[in-house]
Design a protein around this nucleic acid. Structure first.
Lengths: 114, 114
DNA sequence: CAGGATATATCGGCTGCCGATATATGCACA
DNA sequence: TGTGCATATATCGGCAGCCGATATATCCTG
């Protein structure tokens, strides 16, 4: 799963959203760090739909503008959970191995990682 | 940072390794889940070297075969730590939002259906 | 009426992963 | 002997996917 697909699924994890709303939500939930581009979005949406991880929820017209809402499918929920599991495991592995290596300790350890 | 680059850095996080050893190490540390391909490796190695995240450590000839060892640079250590941080945060965000949504609870929650 | 936010969509370029392929050595086995 | 496999390097073409640019349209603000 690509990074872009992961963030789209994450943005849809709590409730259905439309394309532009997904863009804003990803920026917000990542604290501004991740900015999915418009040119990326629709390709990802199409691919995730084709893969059965998301589905068209409904279409609304708000203030003359079409809003096409997508939602996670059950398979999408499972896939996102599994990917989160893999990412957490990968992050842990990296940190463990960095700690094992002969590197200078990183900053901010006082008060600790728990 | 791409997935492949992340795993290469992780494989080098505890000690210098040569290309083929990186391949085996990634497979082992990921419990067989991640299999970096040979065709991917050398491009990643070149790119990481150009980016200053890894450096050539030494070259050895073992049993008539050349072994080219790479190690993390200080910048590589920092970059891997930061990436692990981002991944852990992303995984957490996905899990939190899945829990917030109106989804069936995942497996393994004591008292669950399974 | 100009500019920006909202909202959709497409396309070309570039990056990057992967399968296939090539070369070479050491070892096990028939 | 010679066949195959693991080890170890490297390159190349195809294809997938991200991004910048572009296009269209509405609503609001100044």
């Amino acid at each position: 799963m690509t990074q872009a697909a992961f963030f789209v699924l994450t943005a849809l994890a709590d409730q259905p959203r439309h394309g532009y709303g997904i863009l804003r939500e990803i920026e917000e939930l990542s604290d501004g760090e991740v900015q999915l581009r418009v040119g990326t979005l629709y390709g990802v949406l199409d691919r995730l739909t084709a893969d059965g991880l998301i589905a068209l929820d409904r279409e609304e017209v708000q203030q003359g503008r079409l809003r096409r809402y997508y939602r996670l499918t059950d398979e999408g929920v499972r896939a996102l959970g599994a990917e989160a599991q893999r990412m957490a495991a990968g992050a842990d592995a990296a940190r463990r191995r960095l700690a094992e290596g002969r590197h200078a300790p990183g900053p901010g350890l006082a008060g600790g990682l728990a």
